[in-house]
């Protein structure tokens, strides 16, 4: 009998191959974080000895940690894959950012709208995302093959029944499908698999001395000089790491001395808060994730 990680791996590979076989023009959303790292690793396995038959797409908000971008470029080079980077040109022109416009506007323009632009521009009909059902309540109900209308909207009330592994991939022109091969993985599964398979991850997950300021109880890393400091605010150097990665102004650090994978896993095992708590955008409003997802957020 397969172990639980072997069973999860086989399921994810099956899902990816199904998309490769049935979609006209698939793409893999690559967000550089640990879940993306696992998803990409699984893609390398799924099609071996072929390369994954689709490009990677990174929607760059221009506010990612510098280390993330460096890791992204290294990874793509190491694996010899195609990477598309999309930045919302209107957002860039208007100087949209989390400090000047707030997290809600920034996320909508630079992430959700930017993603839709990129998908439309290239005409992708299937897009892999690394979301997991254990992350958040509305994700728990989403299908593995999740249908999107021509306007990229998700209708949680009208989802296609999904039985066995007979995935319905059929769409009409202009419609698309978001595919979540990690749906049945938990955060612990992800870390165990990274450990077992020795998968490279962004160094930000490991503790190091980093400059941070504390705002509203959240430690924000001063990743570059675009961060406006309030009067009297001085960045302090602290031993911190990140449980989840996104735009640096919107991602809270945690105090930690964990510099190795077992230490990270140990911290996670005894943690009292869930990983998305470090994300500012989830707290904006009740059921905020569900709303964002309906509008096209991943």
């Amino acid at each position: 009998m397969l172990t639980h990680l072997q069973a999860l791996e086989a399921e994810s590979i099956h899902i990816m191959r199904e998309v490769a076989a049935e979609a006209r023009k698939p793409v893999m959303l690559y967000s550089i974080g640990k879940d993306s790292a696992v998803m990409l690793h699984l893609a390398m396995k799924a099609f071996y000895p072929s390369k994954p038959p689709f490009p990677l797409l990174h929607v760059d908000t221009t506010w990612k940690f510098a280390e993330m971008i460096a890791f992204r470029d290294q990874t793509v080079k190491r694996l010899g894959l195609d990477l598309l980077v999309h930045i919302n040109p209107q957002g860039l022109e208007q100087g949209i950012g989390p400090f000047s416009h707030g997290s809600a506007v920034h996320t909508d323009i630079m992430k959700t709208q930017a993603l839709k632009q990129a998908l439309d521009e290239h005409g992708f009909d299937a897009a892999f995302g690394g979301a997991r059902r254990d992350e958040e309540k509305s994700r728990a109900k989403e299908r593995i093959f999740s249908f999107r209308s021509k306007a990229h909207r998700w209708d949680p009330k009208n989802q296609r029944p999904e039985l066995w592994n007979a995935y319905n991939t059929r769409i009409n022109r202009g419609e698309s499908i978001r595919v979540f091969p990690l749906s049945n993985w938990t955060e612990l599964d992800i870390w165990q698999y990274i450990h077992l398979e020795n998968i490279p991850i962004v160094p930000l997950y490991f503790a190091a001395e980093r400059p941070v300021v504390t705002r509203g109880g959240t430690m924000i890393m001063v990743d570059d000089d675009r961060m406006p400091l309030e009067p009297g605010e001085v960045p302090e150097t602290r031993m911190v790491r990140f449980r989840t990665l996104g735009c640096y102004p919107l991602t809270g650090a945690i105090a930690s001395t964990a510099t190795s994978l077992p230490e990270i896993i140990q911290e996670m095992l005894v943690a009292n808060t869930s990983e998305r708590e470090g994300r500012v955008i989830d707290h904006d409003q009740a059921a905020s994730m569900e709303k964002k997802k309906q509008e096209g957020y991943f």
């Binding site: 397969l2 172990t3 999860l8 450990h195 077992l196 077992p262 230490e263 896993i265 095992l269």
Partner: peptide, 16 residues
């Protein structure tokens, strides 16, 4: 940490 490694080892044998 050593116990974490043992724990992870044990976890690898889990079924689903």
């Amino acid at each position: 940490p050593q116990e974490v490694l043992d724990y992870l080892k044990a976890q690898e044998a889990k079924t689903l």
